[in-house]
Every structure is written in C-alpha cells, then in structure tokens.
Design a binder for these strands. Structure first.
Lengths: 99, 99
DNA sequence: TGATGCCTACGACAATGCGTCGTAGGATCA
DNA sequence: TGATCCTACGACGCATTGTCGTAGGCATCA
C-alpha cells in the first residue's frame, strides 16, 4: 500500500490511495488479501486481458461476422510491430497443436 | 436525426438525442455536416477501429513483447467464436501475399 | 504501560460526465 | 404566411472520480 503510493505519486495523501484501492476493490477491479493487519492489493485482470475481453464482447454482440474487427486488429498489430504478425500466426498454430 | 431517434429509443425526447449527438460531436466522436438546415451525423470511427486503436496504443506502450496481449486476444477470440481462429489465420496469410 | 506510528473504515467535497428534458428562436416548406 | 422541424443552450438529478481528513484499531518499542 505504501508501495502503491510510492509508485503512483508520493505527493498524494496516503488515504487517497487507500480510497481509490478500496473503490476499485468494491468494483472487483482489484483483489486483496490480509497480510498482518494490512491489505495487500493486486490487479484482478491484466490490462491485456481486460482489452481482450472487450474484443470478445464486441465479437459476441456483432450480428454480422467478426471479420471487420479481426481486420482492424491486424491492421494495428502490423502497424505497431511488424514482427507481431508472425508471432500471432505461430501462436495460432501452437494452439491448434494442443487442442 | 429523426432516424437516430427511431433507432435508439423512440420514447426519448427529440432534444435528448440532439444533446447527446451534440456532446459527442464536441468530443470528436461523431462527425456532422449540414444538409438543408439540419445536421447529418455519422460516427467518426467504427467501434472496431476505436478498439483496434486501443490495442495499438497498448502495444506501443508495452516495454516487453506484445505476446501477452496476443495470447489474451486469442483466448478470447477462440472462446467466443471457435471458427474465428481459422479466419484470423487466413487473414494473416492473405496479408502476407499482398505486401 | 503508555506513546508512537501504521493501517483501515468511513465520510466529505468539488469537479466532471451522463441521461434526460424544456424553451426560445431560426429555417423550411406547402 | 403559418405550421412544422431543427438547433442552441441551459438546466437538473444522479453517479463517478480525485482528493483529503478524522476516528479508531493494533502493534511495537522504550
């Protein structure tokens, strides 16, 4: 908790961090467990998982095919890291092997 | 505009739609142009493009490899539409052909 | 054992965003 | 020219967010 404060902005009041974490916890965005009287917090989902979940919700809601979304995704992936496409293809293949 | 109202919820007041569109426009989320005294609105970006942009920002900001994001993405894609993986692979291949 | 310090629970307050609408007045069209 | 449609703007209630303070519990240490 002290450490969260240090990482965020040490100029903020301690209770500010406490309040924010508390609210995030009540919304299920972070998990916490007791450790000697004090709570220890950790993220409930990674940023990546949250974003991917967003993608999935969109796919499920689309009446049409998921293709436009996939295409848009590939566009961006390719643009920001050209090698990532190969990586993606490799991951797909690997996934097929094991399932 | 009348049509937006109809598609959204015809029970809402006309001015509700007007206000919402106006606010979206001032935030750049929709574009508009005059057509005989009335504004005609259209989305500035598709939902897909917006989400994909989010993906891109995340990839660019990641100090490490983009792999966790790709993995999370595949997990979700696979879970919500099992055939989409094949589709995705085909799209990657097609992309390689043309570039 | 009492003081010190860290932690939590809870409340507060201002700023902002959002959904909803009404009114006033300009533009359009039969 | 009058009825109809549209825009601009303000308003209101509610929820969220960033920020903090106070009160009180629990442990540690001189």
């Amino acid at each position: 908790m002290r450490s969260v404060l240090a990482e965020a902005d040490p100029a903020l009041a301690y209770t500010t961090i406490a309040t924010v974490l508390d609210r995030l916890h009540s919304k299920g965005r972070v998990l916490r467990e007791k450790s000697g009287g004090a709570w220890v917090y950790r993220a409930a989902r990674t940023r990546e998982a949250a974003l991917a979940g967003e993608v999935a919700r969109m796919m499920r809601r689309a009446e049409t095919s998921p293709e436009p979304l996939l295409v848009a995704f590939l566009d961006e992936v390719e643009a920001s890291d050209p090698t990532a496409l190969d990586q993606l293809e490799a991951l797909i293949r690997a996934r097929r092997q094991t399932s």
